[in-house]
Amino acid sequence: MSEERRDSAMQGSPEPLPHAGVEIDEPKFADKSYSQGQLVRRRFFRHKGALAGLAVLILITLLAFTSIGIGPLPGWWDKDFTTTGSVINGGRPTMGWFYLGEHPFGQDTTGRDYFAMVMRGTQISLVIAFTVGILSTIIGTLIGAIAGYYRGWTESLLMRVTDLFIIIPLLVFAAVLGQIAGGAGIFALAVALAFVTWTGLARLVRGEVLSLREREFVSAAQAIGTGSWRIIMRHILPNTIGVIIVATTFAIASAILLETSLSFLGFGVQPPDISLGSLISDYQTAFTSRPWLFWFPGLFILAIALSVNFIGDGLRDAFDPRQGKDG
């Protein structure tokens, strides 16, 4: 509708928002102004897949944390994940359509309640995933922003370091770090994982910053004497927030899988702690005789990874509506 001006091709990503010069004559929302955050929220909440993902993730989180409790806080489930007992009915799940029974997910060989164990595993996996996601986002964003803004030798140095991290096989690197940190608890493990997973985001953010720093509002800020740090924090990074949030959600999803793989290989969460990956690893041989020991943690991994991915999809569409088909 509006003519593309000569420099529009050069802009990084002009905001695809309603053109103020165009009149909307049958407005759905009369006389209301939206900030960009509000617009994104509105689009996100109309994305059905993302909403479903969000609902599933919230449900799983609530279930995992309220059922067996966190630390000293007790949950509503009366068993815990360490107490052994007699194996009832071969440890089969007692869960039916409308009732839970004594051991809804069954028991393991030593008679521990498998529901409590899966819940504990979910807790640990979620904590690790979110810590890794957030930490690696912070590292990646800072490195990317500094490299992209300052350019020159700073950029060369930071990006070569990034390349170095990329060329080392991730799983091997994580396994070594995880082995070292694993003994020190799950947070140390999470930090170690964050330390190897920031590379993708650093490159992404650098690319965004490279195009944003050429925009005129950055020149305008420089021309009035704004300091570099303030330009990065106040003018550039807020404009990359879409990319960052989307990358973070996908980083969370992949962190869950990375932690699972590590634990499965025996390098991740160390006993007596449990994660979904270590559950699968411990009971992989039981797949034929007691398949539920494999199915339930597997199902939870699938549900968490899928729902986070759906949320990421929804966020991406919300931040970049031009990709959508119906505007």
Partner: peptide, 14 residues
């Protein structure tokens, strides 16, 4: 003071 050409890019959209 400075005024740039492109009104779409000279103000910080955030």
């Amino acid at each position: 003071g400075v005024v740039f050409q492109d009104p779409a890019s000279s103000l910080n959209p955030r």
